[in-house]
Design a protein around this nucleic acid. Structure first.
Lengths: 146, 146
DNA sequence: TCAAGTACTTTGATAATCAAAGGTTTACAT
DNA sequence: ATGTAAACCTTTGATTATCAAAGTACTTGA
């Protein structure tokens, strides 16, 4: 059992590092080569149509407000993101994707879906429940530790 | 099914970002606060007793040789890592952990094992096989894409 | 024995990040 | 209604991680 835990852990660590690296390479070969992987993750966090506030996105990405400002500056300059000043509360900035931003979002999302589909290859519906349970376990472990 | 893929994907993305963030915070509160999370991952890649070569570790971490050199410089300066010039081939540097480095390695490893144990809470041995299969699927997907 | 290749280091430049201070706007207590 | 505190974002100045490319030391193979 101890050995199994070790193997699963090493596998997860390797997977994570490889995903980042592959995403970075795919990005460089794509039409979006003006973006870094961090830019891409910011676009992903902004999402298609939610118009989240800047502070909400900063929290999700675990970035300080200042860092988010400069990330958004860059993405606005490159025409992936729009700032929308809220009328309810004029301190608040809401974030939206431009047409180009939505294109990027979809490309990244497609890669992730492909990845998860391969993850679930030959996994029965019942077994998917197991995986979902394990992921819920992990999420609640992480909540306890934060 | 499509919705499930999306949910699992979002869960994985969130999990990875949270793990990094929690590890970073734990680190700052610990006796190892002179290390960054990247330092910690370098120590993890070096491992306890393998004495891997510098280029091997660089490859695993997806870092250029130059970046690895400066990472190792820092870890040697802080007394976590030793450089061992190979006698077989005097161009080669092998990397080992100092006593302090091994202490850090064990602490990090303990956290990860705890995490995986909680991941596998209430998961039957047979179900663990499913998870291992899914992880193998994912690793081979990543191999195909790199 | 020397030309090419390998393993690491150095150099110079750039990205991403943070903490702290600064502005505008809102909420609240009096 | 008014002044103070708080919330939200931006700016500033410094630091860290990173890379590409050039450099050094060593090995290999013709």
């Amino acid at each position: 059992m101890k050995e199994r835990v070790k193997t699963i852990n090493d596998s997860l660590v390797r997977i994570y590092s490889d995903i980042l690296w592959i995403e970075e390479n795919e990005l460089r070969k794509s039409q979006f080569k003006d973006l870094s992987i961090k830019d891409m993750h910011a676009i992903n966090a902004i999402t298609m149509y939610e118009n989240k506030t800047a502070s909400h996105v900063a929290r999700e990405l675990h970035l300080t407000p200042g860092t988010l400002t400069s990330t958004i500056d860059r993405l606005v300059r490159k025409n992936y993101v729009r700032r929308i000043r809220s009328n309810d509360d004029r301190r608040v900035i809401r974030l939206g994707l431009t047409k180009q931003g939505r294109l990027m979002y979809r490309a990244h999302d497609a890669f992730h879906r492909m990845m998860i589909k391969s993850f679930l290859k030959d996994v029965e519906p019942q077994e998917i429940k197991t995986i979902e349970k394990a992921l819920r376990n992990l999420e609640s472990f992480l909540r306890e530790h934060s």
